[in-house]
C-alpha cells in the first residue's frame, strides 16, 4: 500500500459519498454524473489494488496475506455492484445507495491499511 494513494482513495470515496447523499437530498435520480464519478473512484481503487497485488505476489511478506488479498478484491467490487443496484431503479435513493457502497469501501480500505504490516516496506 502507498500511503499517499490511500489518502487520495479515501478523499475520492468521501467525495462520492457526499455527492450521492447530495443528489438524494436534492431529489435527483442517479444518472450519467453518478456513473462518471463512480468510474473515476473505481479506477483509483483498481490502481491501488494492482500495485498492492504486485507487491504481495512479488515477495512482500504479510502476516495475513490471504485475508489481505480477499479485501483487495472486495475493495474493487463493491462500487460497481452498488452502481448497478443504484441505477436499476431511477429514484432519488440511488445516490444514497452509492453513498453506502462508498462508505463500505472506505472501511474495506481502512482494513487493508491495517493488514498491511510489513517488516520495513
Amino acid at each position: 500500500m502507498i500511503q499517499a494513494l490511500v489518502v487520495v482513495v479515501w478523499i475520492a470515496l468521501a467525495a462520492l459519498a457526499v455527492f450521492g447523499i447530495a443528489t438524494t437530498a436534492s431529489n435527483r435520480p442517479p444518472g450519467r454524473p453518478h456513473k462518471i464519478v463512480t468510474s473515476v473512484v473505481v479506477a483509483l481503487l483498481l490502481v491501488q489494488a494492482m500495485i498492492a497485488a504486485v507487491r504481495v505476489f512479488g515477495g512482500v511478506q504479510l502476516p495475513e496475506s490471504t485475508t489481505f488479498l480477499i479485501y483487495l478484491v472486495v475493495s474493487v467490487c463493491v462500487l460497481p455492484i452498488g452502481l448497478q443496484f443504484a441505477t436499476a431503479e431511477p429514484t432519488r435513493w440511488g445516490g444514497a445507495v452509492l453513498a453506502v457502497a462508498a462508505i463500505a469501501t472506505g472501511v474495506v480500505v481502512w482494513r487493508l491499511q491495517d493488514l498491511w504490516v510489513v517488516g520495513g516496506a
Binding site: G94, V97, V100
Partner: peptide, 14 residues
Amino acid sequence: SSGPGRVLIAVYAI
C-alpha cells in the same frame, strides 16, 4: 425493495 428500501437492502447486503 423500492425507494429508501434500496438503501436499507444495500446496508443489509454489505
